[in-house]
């Protein structure tokens, strides 16, 4: 089934999405991958302030290529989610609910998504040019020293994804 998800999300829209649904995302999408996850994890453990409010927001595992002139961003497809697995349950415990990446997740992540009524969506791997065309604007948020791995904020429109784990903890396949 086709669904839409506006971000920041409302509970009703989030819980209407089932695993196996195609989902079009519009709105605000925060972006962070390996090093950002390590830092967010460490910030939570040490009680430091987080660089963005998890409440209502989503994180996209991605590191873009540089933007050519006239583009908001370069190629911008998902990276492999499994590498974020060691960090995700703690982030979910601290209020993060929606994750967008590619590929399967660990059992711990599936369990955490169920416990905290989250959502794991898969973007189509390798489709960086396609995702570039859905991104309207880019804003730098934190850790610029990480270069292509920095924490940034996107505004997206009709960003295509696929629900792998829904808020009831049901998994696709």
């Amino acid at each position: 089934m086709s669904r839409v998800l506006h971000l920041p999300f409302c509970e009703q829209e989030l819980s209407s999405i089932n695993c196996g649904d195609e989902v079009l995302i519009s709105g605000i999408l925060y972006v962070g991958r390996d090093q950002v996850h390590k830092r967010l994890f460490e910030a939570i453990v040490s009680g430091a302030e987080l660089p963005f409010d998890f409440n209502g927001n989503a994180i996209y595992y991605m590191g873009p290529s540089p933007a050519p002139e006239g583009f908001a961003i370069g190629s911008a497809g998902p990276t492999t989610s499994a590498r974020m697995d060691p960090f995700s349950p703690l982030l979910l415990k601290h209020g993060l609910r929606v994750m967008v990446g590619k590929g399967p997740r660990s059992k711990d992540v599936v369990d955490a998504v169920k416990e905290y009524r989250g959502l794991y969506l898969q973007a189509y791997g390798g489709c960086g040019a396609l995702y570039c065309s859905t991104i309207k604007s880019v804003e730098s948020i934190a850790y610029p020293e990480l270069g292509p791995e920095a924490l940034i904020k996107l505004e997206v429109e009709n960003f295509p994804a696929f629900c792998i784990i829904d808020s009831r903890g049901n998994s696709f396949r």
Binding site: M62, P64, S65, S75, T79, G126, C127, G128, A129, C132
Partner: peptide, 19 residues
């Protein structure tokens, strides 16, 4: 999605994948 991506990369002259 992959086929659309191939077409967009060619048309806009941007990398197929960010990696």
């Amino acid at each position: 999605a992959i086929v659309d991506n191939i077409d967009i990369a060619r048309e806009k002259n941007i990398p197929l994948c960010q990696d």
